[in-house]
Design a protein around this nucleic acid. Sequence first.
DNA 1: GGAAATAACTTCTTTAAACGAAGTTAAATT
DNA 2: AATTTAACTTCGTTTAAAGAAGTTATTTCC
Lengths: 170, 170
Amino acid sequence: MSGARRSFAGIDCAVAQAIEQMGDPWILLILRCQFQGIKRFDDFQGHLQISTSVLTDRLRRLVQAGLLRKEQDQQDKRGTVYLLTEKGMDFYPVMIALHQWSERWEAREDGPRLELLDKQSREPVRTVRVLSQDYRELSAKDVLALVDDRSGEMMQDIQERLKRRRGDAA
Amino acid sequence: MSGARRSFAGIDCAVAQAIEQMGDPWILLILRCQFQGIKRFDDFQGHLQISTSVLTDRLRRLVQAGLLRKEQDQQDKRGTVYLLTEKGMDFYPVMIALHQWSERWEAREDGPRLELLDKQSREPVRTVRVLSQDYRELSAKDVLALVDDRSGEMMQDIQERLKRRRGDAA
DNA sequence: GGAAATAACTTCTTTAAACGAAGTTAAATT
DNA sequence: AATTTAACTTCGTTTAAAGAAGTTATTTCC
């Protein structure tokens, strides 16, 4: 981004918070590499063709956000390894959901690039979905997003706008 | 982004493709609004405090990418409604996974901002996870990412790098 | 043990895309 | 007919991204 890089920190919404940290192409690509087992500065660079200054910046941000931690490489003391924290590993469902969405809608004609198999059973993993307690697949229209009373004006503002439009319109 | 806006289109990887389209804060925030039922230009602007030029651009991109479609508002013929396509609706699991991840790691001290309930049962939706066929929760280390033979050099390059490092190191 | 190589950065300059503000067009309400 | 409103477009400025070159501290090679 440029102009004046906006902050979404003020928006009282979990997704906006997440986007504040993760809504950057390089951040997401670096994390994707992590899930493939890439841990070192040079390997990120070799794979992603990212400039050193940007890579440094994004790794720093990821460490600051608590998704990665820095450690000295035990094999080569010069080296540094960037390892996923629990918070970082917990991002895995988002990454896989993104991967599967992309495979569904931007698929190459000659089949999937990458198959994700459960190591234990050797079967493909399930498609990541929003599920009910009894495992029904839910779409957006099946889900009620209940705004908590304590929420800021932001969320309630939306609901009022929509109410006004539906009710008073025409 | 600036300098020279990088394209990830060349990277032969589903996630990179997805990030090419969706790895932008405004794109994600607009889509989040969509899932909340916001459909009109002014409502996006009122909610997100996004400048008109950027909003125009991002809506255009979303239409071009096939996640939204433009239609004339039936109530007010001046108006335009932006509606989710099937591809757009299919992004829902990614959004909810992101939401839940954020609630887990950036939670406010006074509880969740938004509760997601299954309309049918009124119970909370399940946490979005990567699941095996028999519904075991899988983390990254439980999943084998099998690279297809037909994949480009990119993916295989990673595997070779890692092999070399493990094998020939020390 | 000294020289060359390598890992992981910093610093610097250039560039172009993103941002915000103000202006525009066309439809609808008064 | 005049005013308001929706949905943009245009324009100038800002600023982060890219890329190249330089830096420091190990480590391997001879």
